[in-house]
Write a protein that binds this DNA or RNA. Structure first.
Lengths: 192, 192
DNA sequence: ACTTTTCTGTACTCTTCGGTATATTAAAGT
DNA sequence: ACTTTAATATACCGAAGAGTACAGAAAAGT
């Protein structure tokens, strides 16, 4: 009973994600958000609670989407090392317009230090990604493509740190060739 | 002639640097800034022009200080590789309180994408750091400590990307041992 | 001592911020 | 058809945002 919602919650959340992703938490105003989401302020507060909660939800939605995409991407690799190489390549912007970076990296820098809940959300996500990557490291070790010096989880954690660095570097470095070279150099640490 | 300034410009700038470093550009209010700097609003505008210009000046002051510190730090290494290891270790926070990260990384994420001038300031600084690091890579290669696969500048650029990643990782990873392990793994890419 | 110039401090501007009260509209249950 | 319940839209709130006008205060030059 009662009037039905005039918008799809997940669509609105996806739009909010775009705004926060591009502008960050502080710089994204409610006007920015409601205009992009196509809903009114009270609808936003009714559905999402507050700006901070919306931000958390947006971040988590982004993470879920990113993991699903990553899952597919890794499976497409011809070899374990190729999969990991493709993973690193996702940090290299396709076009000049595509300069939003990684929402998780942005959130780590902007909000993780003073928002405990966001920090937790990020930690959980990063751990899941690390675990996912570790499976490919393990497969690579079994295939003799990857050195046995490190445990799969340690190697995966290192790859996570490496891609974080690539995301930061991409903000001031336009040339994809440079980024590719740095990814390749970083990857070589895992080879036998 | 005229009244003399009641504050030292570089002291005030150093205080402003702290505020921007910790809070970022958007989240740092003029009230935050003037209170910390110990000056009044008109003095700030008179001396620094605007919030944006103050931010740029603060960032540049930080960079100059960071390069001077880096110069000294690198010289203290027992070997070229040890110097580079010490460089990477600067991304590992000493205490739990020390969670400001690297101002340059923060600026890369928060402002570089939509502020061309800041992007340039960052590019210049990173290039200088890269050049500085390259000298130690080169020395390491001459000493046979570092592989000859990469040019000194390429290897130095890679180290820059790696330390960026460490700074991001440090925001959600408290344990210094994990960070040290990742730095070591990254460094191993340069060894013969 | 006096004038001039420059900095300081108070108080203000207008705008935008995040968040909400209220009235209206529309869908569901009876 | 009518009541109930929930979502919408308009309009507003106090607080805080960046930036400034203006008067008083202090240092330099004469």
């Amino acid at each position: 009973m009662g009037r039905i919602k005039q918008f799809k919650v997940e669509d609105a959340l996806a739009k909010a994600t775009d705004v926060f992703w591009q502008k960050g938490f502080e710089a994204a105003s409610l006007t920015d958000l409601t205009e992009e989401m196509g809903i009114q302020r009270p609808s936003l507060y009714d559905t999402f609670g507050s700006k901070a909660e919306l931000y958390r939800d947006a971040l988590m939605a982004y993470q879920a989407g990113a993991r699903a995409q990553l899952d597919k991407l890794l499976a497409e690799g011809t070899t374990p090392v190729d999969s990991l190489r493709r993973f690193l390549a996702t940090a290299i912007p396709d076009s000049v317009n595509d300069r939003k970076g990684c929402f998780c990296v942005n959130a780590s820098i902007e909000t993780a230090s003073h928002e405990a809940e966001i920090q937790e959300v990020l930690q959980k996500h990063f751990l899941q990604v690390q675990t996912l990557l570790a499976r490919y490291v393990s497969a690579g070790q079994a295939a003799g493509e990857i050195s046995l010096d490190l445990s799969p989880m340690d190697a995966a954690g290192y790859l996570l740190t490496l891609i974080h660095g690539l995301h930061v570097t991409a903000r001031t470095t336009a040339d994809p060739a440079i980024l590719t070279a740095r990814a390749e150099c970083g990857l070589s640490a895992l080879l036998p």
